[in-house]
Nucleic acid binder design. Sequence first.
DNA 1: CGACCATTTGATATGGATCAAGCGATGTGG
DNA 2: CCACATCGCTTGATCCATATCAAATGGTCG
Lengths: 226, 226
Amino acid sequence: MPHQKLVQSDSCARDPCFNSAIETRIFHSAIHQIGISMTFRGNTEIYGENEPAEYLYKVSSGAIRTFKVLSDGRRQIGAFYLPGDIFGQEVGNEHKSSAEAVVDSNIVAINRGALAALAARDGRIARQFWALTATELQCVQNHLTLLIMTAQERVSGFILEMAKHSRDGLEIELPMSRQDIADYLGLTIETVCRTLKQMERCSIIALPNSRHIVLRNRVALSRLDA
Amino acid sequence: MPHQKLVQSDSCARDPCFNSAIETRIFHSAIHQIGISMTFRGNTEIYGENEPAEYLYKVSSGAIRTFKVLSDGRRQIGAFYLPGDIFGQEVGNEHKSSAEAVVDSNIVAINRGALAALAARDGRIARQFWALTATELQCVQNHLTLLIMTAQERVSGFILEMAKHSRDGLEIELPMSRQDIADYLGLTIETVCRTLKQMERCSIIALPNSRHIVLRNRVALSRLDA
DNA sequence: CGACCATTTGATATGGATCAAGCGATGTGG
DNA sequence: CCACATCGCTTGATCCATATCAAATGGTCG
């Protein structure tokens, strides 16, 4: 799960080649100055695979998923982006994934060309711009590690990721469906359900309803995640 | 599989924010000028997880694997680096994986600080420096896609990747063991063996010996890879 | 209230893991 | 030069985690 805050608080902050908290703030305020605010209803497309990547997006509210659909219809969700996260940064000129709003969402769109122009004049902006790719890399690598693990480990990994985004780190409001979670973790809906249920039986979590998870035993949960 | 050539020939080349073939050449010649050549025997460590990332490395000959070992001993190979590839680029100041020579290898080590200094004076170098992260991202994303597929698809994906590195794209010399392949694909040795054998039975590939694969039917192979 | 869709739960099937030999190179010492 | 130990690979038999198929439940909206 991409997460701008990670960049500030993690190892990256110490790397002279990367960003600092101050630069991050400058960058985000630049985004809001040159960006255009937009609204998307849940389950609507923001951009499609192979489309030219003209814009970068910052999530103001809601949740976004990026994904690829394989030839046989299987869907691989690459990431979920939550408020504060930036998505749409690509390696080339084209989007390598599609992006959809998971629920009704507000996002700020920033023209990549305009941002590049700013970056050309301000090294701090340039560093932040590049740091997006680095953050992305970090997230994909974590995701990769999840995919070689057992169902239990994947689900606990997912819950712990989501918990980082929640206010208190204990109560999680899931914007996404079971199918979304399954496609993110490379499992089926049924396995996700059963695994969650089993964790509930062990009093590791509580499931007041299908979109709400409460952490009851974080230590046990972390243990499940290898 | 990271692959500098990818950066030149792929979509990235068209992105003004990224590199061009000329810049790539300038970058690589800079590496050879400020880099120190080193030799590693097969199965020896180049760097370990969490060590400070002082150097960047370019493979001259041989093959390198980067990997993480999970708490329970499972090993996840993140990538194989073959001649021409650059590895050791990290998001922060520390290596997030360990690196080992797969077979006896020659590599050129470049001080990251020295490269950063060059980059500060030459935007072309800076772009290339950053493009490394982008290339890495691209590769991890491909790897991620492999891991949600069936054993057959993973193995064919792997073979096709390796074929890109071979001279004629048909005859593949594998530097790595079955265990390495298994740990890269998230499978067991036995499954890798059986899958290869089955492809041989279908005349999709030939296996003159365990380290040599010959593509007999590339179309059928690509079809297996979703 | 009834239709609809997401989620849960249950029963069964299966792909890949695990366990266990066998085999074929490579190397070592007698 | 040949037994023999070693190590990586292959092959076979069995098991199990997760997928698949099927049905029940429950929440939401007209």
